[in-house]
Nucleic acid binder design. Structure first.
Lengths: 212, 212
DNA sequence: TCAAATAAATGACCGTTAGTCATAAAAAAG
DNA sequence: CTTTTTTATGACTAACGGTCATTTATTTGA
């Protein structure tokens, strides 16, 4: 009989519901300020039940990061479509990053926060590595764009695709973090707006990538 | 009589001792895993006393970031000395960043962690702004280097000194963070070492800055 | 030198929160 | 309908940041 399968589905469904609840709570109050009781109440469950589905508050959080990572990966794929040269693709990926920041600010915050954490080796190795798996996908899209740019002559052929992708990933994250955490100071003290900095970054990087 | 002055000195001395103790504890166990009781015991004081000198655990931490920032600023000054062209100065500042990372890893960690936090507006406005003051100094050294490079013709004249300094600051932080938090994954999954990535970053950036 | 006044230090205590576990309710199996 | 298994509960614990009434040490003024 299909009882077992149904139960499996229901279990998964409950898991998803809990993550949804956690998302609502974390996104509205911030991760640090949210309590597991908040999440339990939002999910209309008791706190104990949460721990039947997740090992810790952190694992719940990682699940959200997983969602974020999948969204970003999707944005990358979409960005690359309909672009001709590799350079254009690469630029589009950068714009995908910005779109992520603009259209999914909560997921992006979760994602940034995650990048500044190292997790317990053993504890959540599975989830962490599955997150990394999706990130790897995004990275591959990135690497492919650069490779194709080198092939079609739009990107300098002295560049190394993998290194460049990692580099741009790190740089972009750095800039977006700077904006997120110190954006106000930049505006007030240096009279530099978010948009200016981003477009300057794009221009600077574009020049460094393109063939002369 | 000089009693008041002496007491003032002693108070300051105690403050310093507490920060020293906090440093030992935070650096060895990590900020999150350290308790105020740990710090108190390291400082050979009771916990209550800590709160006579610092408003919170976070303020204690900010004090360490302040030290870190001063060190970085000093490294920048030292780096710029004896360099002739602005481009060389700029590169030397980048190397100063790396030196900070290599020679003062604990301070650098504190510094990075700080960059990913936004603090209570009111609570520690004084200290936060004094930290920002020192950072501003570093930033000025950076901006001056780029300006001089534009003047002496070693750096592309289409670049904006302030924007470029902010940009490079953000990029460098991004790369160092990537290495710190995901360095192991980069090595294992992409076979990319820390040193390779850094030198690639330098080369890439150098090309983007220099006049053709 | 000593008592009053002031400053510095203490540690028991409080409120909060992540995580646990014995118990109960619900569902499935036979 | 009874037994077994699964799922859910919420009172409880341990740990920690921060507070405050009380104690201890130091300074002041006569």
């Amino acid at each position: 009989m299909g009882t077992a399968e149904r139960r499996e589905r229901e279990k998964l469904r409950r898991r998803t519901d809990i993550v949804d609840a956690a998302e609502n709570v974390f996104f509205s109050k911030g991760f640090e300020n949210s309590t597991m009781d908040d999440v339990a109440s939002e999910a209309e469950l008791s706190k104990g039940t949460l721990y039947l589905y997740f090992k810790s508050k952190e694992e719940l959080y990682l699940e959200i990061v997983h969602r974020a990572t999948k969204i970003l990966s999707g944005l990358f794929l979409e960005a690359v479509k309909n672009k001709t040269t590799g350079l254009e693709k690469t630029k589009a990926i950068g714009e995908g990053f910005i779109k992520f920041n603009k259209e999914y600010p909560n997921y992006h915050n979760a994602f940034l926060y995650h990048q500044t954490k190292q997790y317990d080796e053993k504890l959540s190795a599975d989830l962490e590595s599955s997150v990394f798996g999706v990130k790897r996908q995004s990275m591959e899209i990135f690497v492919d764009a650069i490779k194709s740019g080198i092939k079609d002559g739009s990107i300098r052929e002295t560049l190394d695709p993998v290194k460049t992708a990692v580099l741009l990933w790190g740089e972009t994250t750095g800039i977006l973090m700077l904006i997120k955490f110190k954006g106000k100071l930049l505006r007030q003290n240096l009279n530099l707006s978010e948009e200016e900095l981003i477009s300057y970054f794009f221009e600077f990087t574009y020049q460094a990538l393109k063939t002369n």
